[in-house]
Design a protein around this nucleic acid. Structure first.
Length: 431
RNA sequence: GUGGGUGUAGCUCAGUUGGUUAGAGCGUCGGGUUGUGGUUCCGAAGGUCGUGGGUUCGAUUCCCAUCUCUCACCCCA
């Protein structure tokens, strides 16, 4: 079919069996969030552009080249590129931080970034995220990391590495930046072009460069962990000991540098090699300065986000089973038009017992109806013709065994069918 | 934003060294004597060969452009 309007590049439709993949993940994520005391929050899809400039940061790639911004009625809005900024804004605007602290919020939402799509990267993608505001202690970091780990484990995902790092507070980071700059200044001639431009803006990004030359140079660069102030260093040490207590294996990776400006102290990622180059399925960290930055009281906070598409990809590639949808319980096959009223009536009655019921609405012959019933996985079928209507009895056919059971066509049909279903499910145990 | 690959039926792919009505398997729909599916048999529908130009008597095949999808860089979930 020549369809002239297609979905925008980098977006996805979710249909058919894929819906169950999403449901599986959303269910798991919500269950775990509940166990950890997090409450769902829903926020707008777009915000005033200024919000992202102030939180994500003016110099970040996300703000500089990836945001979908529009001016509408003289106000500049942006489709959210991530969930933290809007969530914190909502916490402030709804005075949630004046209530019992810490506040724990989670969300499932779509994000928008204008990048070239590739494996594990879309222009509209979905995140499950959590934000916890009001706790400064490393035990909060450990709890949040445990939560991410619990979700990953509960989904059955394997081959995931937890990497943690501390990027310090603004105080110790300033010292580190100057040390880094000094180091790279000496090797200026060898650095790649992009790294040269990073030298002034954000020297920590050079550590992450994939160019063989740069990464070779970066090997001997000063490490942030050596420049942490006492407080940050203590925080990081305690976090590590807590993670050990929780039996979470992790590696300290000084190259973990988050690309959003609001991060402080702890940063972490859960990474897999099973889904291509974009292997970070969960990323997060602490952002102690953000709430004040957005006009609130100085309140420490932290959080993480998981890419739902990446979780699904990982599960697919690892051969993990998703929840099965409930199929059709009963298919009713009217022989001809005169049986349709009875078919509709029975369908209505049996549905009232909570069962999924279908009947023919396209005028198929009996054989074709049976084929259709088989195709949709109907557990039972019921044929309605002249005989059934005059005798007010019919046979219910079990599509798996072929066995036929007599049933009365009256107002008790719903509970009778219910008995048949129960017997079908638990008959072996009961008898 | 940069680079590589790709584009023939709903899906997976053949094919034409440029030449009349472009094929297969799967899927969809119908039928195999008038009331029963999964196997099998028969049949049907479905493609302006990604789009727009150019070369040619003639292009799905050659050339150019463009778009799509895809992978990687970058960046991030």
């Amino acid at each position: 079919m020549a369809l002239n309007i297609k979905r925008p590049n980098g977006t996805e439709d979710v249909t058919g069996k894929n819906i169950e993949k999403w449901n599986t993940i959303e269910r798991t994520v919500k269950d775990v969030a509940k166990e950890f005391g997090f409450h769902e929050i829903r926020i707008p899809t777009f915000e005033n552009t200024e919000l992202f400039h102030r939180s994500v940061g003016e110099t970040t790639d996300v703000v500089q080249k990836e945001m979908y911004s529009v001016i509408a009625k003289e106000t500049e809005f942006t489709l959210r590129p991530e969930g933290t900024a809007g969530t914190i804004r909502a916490m402030l605007q709804n005075s949630l931080l004046n209530e019992a602290l810490p506040q724990r919020a989670f969300y499932i939402l779509s994000c928008f970034r204008h990048e070239r799509p590739q494996a594990g990267r879309l222009r509209e993608f979905h995140q499950f995220g959590v934000e916890m505001a009001g706790s400064a202690l490393p035990s909060a970091d450990a709890d949040v990391i445990l939560m991410a780990n619990t979700i990953i484990t509960q989904l059955g995902i394997e081959n995931v590495e937890l990497k943690i790092n501390s990027i310090g507070c603004p105080k110790c980071r300033a010292n580190y930046h100057s040390a880094l700059k000094a180091y790279f200044e000496n090797k200026k001639d060898e650095l790649c072009e992009t790294c040269l431009s990073r030298l002034d803006k954000n020297p920590m990004r050079i550590l992450d460069c994939k160019s063989p030359v740069c990464s070779e140079i970066a090997k001997d660069a000063p490490v942030i962990l050596d420049y942490l102030c006492d407080e940050c260093s203590d925080h990081f040490n305690k976090l590590q000991s807590y993670l050990k207590t929780l039996n979470l294996s992790f590696t300290v990776d000084p190259k973990i540098v988050r690309g959003l400006d609001y991060y402080t102290k702890t940063v972490f990622e859960f990474v897999t090699t099973d889904i291509g180059a974009q292997g970070t399925i969960c990323g997060g960290g602490r952002y102690d300065g953000l709430i004040k930055q957005l006009g609130g009281q100085d309140t420490p906070a932290l959080g993480f986000a998981m890419g739902l598409e990446r979780l699904i990809m990982t599960m697919e590639n690892q051969g993990i089973e998703f929840d099965e949808p409930l199929g059709c319980s009963l298919y009713i096959a009217p022989m001809d038009e005169s049986a349709i009223p009875m078919a509709m009536y029975i369908a209505k009655e049996v549905r009232s017992g909570g069962f999924q019921v279908e009947f023919d609405t396209v005028g198929r012959g009996l054989k074709a109806q049976m084929k259709y019933a088989d195709k949709i996985g109907a557990q039972f079928t019921l044929v309605l013709g002249e005989n059934e209507i005059t005798s007010q009895t019919a046979k219910i056919k079990n599509m798996q065994t072929g066995e036929q059971i007599d049933i009365e066509l009256n107002e008790h049909i719903s509970s009778e069918f219910s008995d048949i279903m129960l017997d079908n499910l638990f008959g072996d145990i009961l008898n």
